[in-house]
Design a protein around this nucleic acid. Sequence first.
DNA 1: TTGGAAAGTCAACAAGGCTGACGTAAATTC
DNA 2: GAATTTACGTCAGCCTTGTTGACTTTCCAA
Lengths: 166, 166
Amino acid sequence: MAEGNTGGESLLFLTDEQLRKGIEAMFFAYRGFTADPDRILETMDYGRAHHRAIHFIHRSPGTTVSNLLAILGVTKQSLNRVLRTLIDDGLVEARVGRSDKRERNLHLTAKGQELERKLSDAQRARMRAAYRAAGPAAVQGFRTVLEAMMDPEMRRQYQSLREGDK
Amino acid sequence: MAEGNTGGESLLFLTDEQLRKGIEAMFFAYRGFTADPDRILETMDYGRAHHRAIHFIHRSPGTTVSNLLAILGVTKQSLNRVLRTLIDDGLVEARVGRSDKRERNLHLTAKGQELERKLSDAQRARMRAAYRAAGPAAVQGFRTVLEAMMDPEMRRQYQSLREGDK
DNA sequence: TTGGAAAGTCAACAAGGCTGACGTAAATTC
DNA sequence: GAATTTACGTCAGCCTTGTTGACTTTCCAA
């Protein structure tokens, strides 16, 4: 991998060795990625499922339950259990839809925003440290590979979210 | 936080926007990363926990239960349940240690090797496609950021595995 | 010889996935 | 206006995979 060359070089990366290293890197890095929020959540009565719901409600305020189901890829019953506790605890508000009253538009309350902050601060801190250590070029490559690794449907979700706010 | 700066270019990347995109990229990509093996596993009676055990036993044949516990980061009881089914089903063999008879040296049987192949072929195929699509430079960055994202202890595990086989 | 580490086992529990069935209100279609 | 579909909620029950605590057996090493 030292030298250069063109069409050929990419093939040099595709040994089973290289691929396996990538696989293990994903495994260990994902643990690190979730470790900080997990530590915060476990002191409260919440888990990773709550974090995910909070994250995407924060990300797309007013989103519906169906939307959330599509993004999170879980069943209605599973999401409902989590959403129920968040609503009961006053972190999430479910407003009846204006145009379509069957829908529930989900929003974080002040209390919900506060927890979201805490969780994402922790996660961003780690991400920031990793980015700093790796440098800008590495960050670009990191995102490119991750995007290529997603299922097409997930990639659409990811990209639509990107445009969505920008 | 827009401008500023001190260290220079890397700081430009560290907006909350950039960081959040990285966080969501990890979330969606990890789903893709595990999707293919998950599909295979669910047709059998196994889950992700079995996959992880099989992977690391394949990776370090003869490893002990304690070693595996350290790598996987779960409790003895949890691992034992998984290991029990793999041993009973004839995928893993637990040989009494030679020097220390308290230890169990874990190996994949032929049948275990076969499943390992199937699972890692599926996972490598996706990784290979992502690597191809992203290109060598991106792959380099990908691995660099992931490594920086690990907990120090996990990073040691990861790196020792890397040297381990070369 | 005795203390403690390594491994295994039993029991009980929780989070968070899943399926299936059912109910209700609102929107849409015929 | 009636029938159907959609969005959501909920009850019941199941599974995997994580947890803690308590206990035993083996066996190395001081």
